[in-house]
Write a protein that binds this DNA or RNA. Structure first.
Length: 591
RNA sequence: GGUGCUGUGGUGUAGUGGUUAACACACCGGUCUGUCACACCGGAGAUCGCGGGUUCAAUUCCCGUCAGCACCGCCA
């Protein structure tokens, strides 16, 4: 008899013909049971995979146990690996050339019939999956993602360590600062009425580590933002946070590119060339209507304001007369591929993104159709051919409004066309740097400038002279890393001189007292010899999701939140006992 | 804060102003020695998310509400 305390000699999914005739002990879950009456097959599953167990009636003890097994029971099996007869090989199973003849089966634990089975093939409702997350995670597809995530994190840790970066942990209990997203707050018991904030990112800490002389820092950092959720946004998420001193920007970006190249190759087997393309913010907005363009397909936006400025179509004329623009997306061969119904949906998309409408034109067999047809002269069409390369069979979508509106609306229409026409495919990975973001934007509700990236971002040297005279035209030394139309990272070179940081805070409308209160320690640190530095934060969850071909972040997070920020398994957030609140000096309004 | 979609046995779906609310899987019992999403026979299992309204009658129509999802706003 084998050692009873030994649970396993092999992983179920690892058995191969070379193990034939070996005695093995397996432990795992009953994936499926096929009871033929005089012969019982059990598919046993562990993390490594599935193997078929055969129980013959001659092994009376084992057979008796096998008859009572149910799905998801946890069992231990002793038996012998044998090659399957030619005609019973299962080519769909990695272990399909062998099976295990069992002579002993122990039930380590029984199981209720689960609300859904890990062996099931159908789509399970998201609510169900989240409520019983531990069952959802039994499915190999989910386990594979978690394993993949582990491997990526390990690879990144190794890569950065080899490049002399030091992993440093920074506090989770920190302080709320103005600017940025809404904070998650944690009440202090020792100082009633005071609150910690969970970090939106370790930004200030990592800059202080640069002042401290660490020179190269990284962290797999959990970050928290109390804002509404999306498919690509969770309230807590993980950043690969990186900062370094004394490094030229191009060299830093090269390092990040090399790392992403390695990760992509590891996960997908796809080799992405680098350097990655770079595009300025302005160009991205003009050509793609997005600051995170999906460049896997064309359909670029073309400005035709000049061409149609005298158009009889009033919407065009008026847009231009009031300082706006007219731009179009040309869909090659779109005339035959896009139905009236599709057009209606595209129009809704444009409207949802601020446009008043979406004018369109089909060019088929030399004749024009669509609401614009009667307004476009032969002459204008000729010039459109020149400017936008329009040819027969094309379909054109026009946006006419103020520049920002047209950018956003046509950007959304472009993505809708991507999905409608199926223009992208699995296995395509287009990395892209978006650079030269504006440093500031004007917030009309707060009536002041706010930082586009964050208040620690350095203005571009050549724009610095415009800081006081024309702040909105100042570009930042900031860069986003974009993959397939998702922002997967963002960073900047930082301000590292006190006077400059002070000037930036003043520009953002913070009073001297506010600066002293909120950032006093920070600017003070700059007086003690802060090195030139910069960095980036990469969104690990998004990177994994994209590389693993998943369209929502929940699938790459072990225990994610719903769109309303709840955990359906734990039922968090939850109420707390009155004594807990009392200790914290908190009373809750109940209306 | 707003818009849209969804909510029917354990699960996935079908369906209807008056039905015995249908099907598949799962579940329970039985038969079966080469199955592998086993097969076959039989069985049990649903206050149709919740509340209100319209109606002789509501799972179905209307309003509200809750939950999940997608999106807009928001997310430096």
């Amino acid at each position: 008899m084998e050692d009873q305390t030994l649970f396993r000699t092999h992983g179920a999914g690892t058995l191969r013909p070379e193990h034939a005739e070996e005695k093995v002990i397996l432990s795992g879950w009953v994936h499926r049971r096929r009871d033929l009456g005089g012969l019982i097959f059990i598919d046993v599953r562990d993390r490594s995979g599935i193997v078929q167990i055969v129980v013959h009636p001659e092994q009376a003890d084992a057979f008796q146990v096998a008859e009572t097994l149910r799905n998801e029971y946890v069992i231990r099996i002793e038996g012998k690996v044998v090659r399957r007869a030619e005609e019973t090989v299962n080519p769909d199973l990695p272990t399909g050339e062998v099976e295990v003849i069992a002579w002993a089966i122990d039930i380590l634990n029984t199981a209720q019939t689960p609300p859904f089975s890990p062996a099931e093939h159908k789509e399970i409702d998201e609510k169900m999956r989240l409520r019983y997350r531990y069952l959802d995670l039994r499915r190999s597809a989910m386990q594979n993602i978690l394993i993949l995530r582990h491997q990526v994190t390990q690879a990144i840790r190794r890569f950065l360590s080899e490049h002399d970066f030091v992993e440093v942990e920074t506090p989770m209990l920190t302080k709320s600062t103005p600017e940025g997203a809404r904070d998650f707050l944690v009440p202090s018991r020792l100082k009633p009425g005071s609150f910690y904030a969970l970090p939106q990112s370790p930004q200030i800490y990592k800059q202080l580590l640069m002042v401290a002389g660490l020179e190269r820092y990284f962290q797999v950092a959990r970050c928290f933002r109390d804002e509404d959720l999306r498919a690509d946004r969770q309230p807590e998420f993980t950043q690969i946070d990186i900062e370094m001193s004394f490094m030229p920007l191009h060299a830093f970006q090269d390092l990040i590119e090399t790392m992403m190249q390695e990760v992509t190759a590891m996960v997908t087997g796809v080799h992405v060339p680098h350097p990655f393309p770079r595009i300025s913010y302005t160009e991205a907005m003009d050509r793609y209507g997005s600051d995170k363009p999906d460049t896997r397909f064309g359909l670029e936006i073309v400005d035709v304001s000049e061409t149609v400025k005298d158009s009889p179509f009033q919407v065009f004329r008026q847009a231009i007369a009031t300082g706006g623009v007219v731009r179009l997306i040309r869909v090659p061969d779109g005339a035959g591929r896009i139905s009236r119904k599709d057009v209606g949906a595209l129009e809704e998309t444009a409207k949802a993104h601020g446009a008043k409408g979406l004018a369109w034109l089909k060019i088929e067999g030399g004749t024009l159709s669509g609401p614009l047809a009667k307004f476009i002269s032969e002459d204008e069409l000729g010039r459109l051919r020149e400017v936008a390369g329009v040819s027969d069979g094309d379909m054109l979508f026009f946006g006419a409004d103020q520049k920002d509106v047209v950018r956003q609306a046509l950007g959304a229409v472009r993505l809708a066309l991507r999905d409608l026409l199926g223009l992208v495919f699995p296995g395509q990975f287009q990395f892209l740097w978006v650079t030269d973001f504006p440093l500031l934007e004007y917030d009309p509700t707060e009536k002041r400038y706010v930082a586009v990236h964050h208040p620690f971002t350095r203005p571009k040297e050549e724009d610095r002279h415009k800081l006081m005279t024309d702040p909105l035209s100042v570009r930042a030394e900031a860069y986003d890393l974009v993959l397939n139309g998702y922002e997967i990272g963002g960073g900047s070179l930082r301000i590292y001189r006190r006077e400059e940081q002070d000037a930036m805070f003043r520009l953002l409308g913070l009073s001297e007292e506010e600066v002293a209160e909120k950032f006093g320690f920070f600017v003070e640190a700059f007086e003690y010899g802060a090195p030139p530095h910069g960095g980036i934060a990469l969104g690990l969850d998004r990177i994994i999701a994209i590389l693993a071909g998943r369209s929502n972040l929940r699938d790459v997070i072990a225990f994610p939140k719903t769109q309303s920020g709840t955990d359906l398994m734990m039922d968090a957030p939850g109420r707390v006992r009155p004594e807990q609140l009392a200790e914290l000096g908190i009373s809750v309004r109940t209306n």
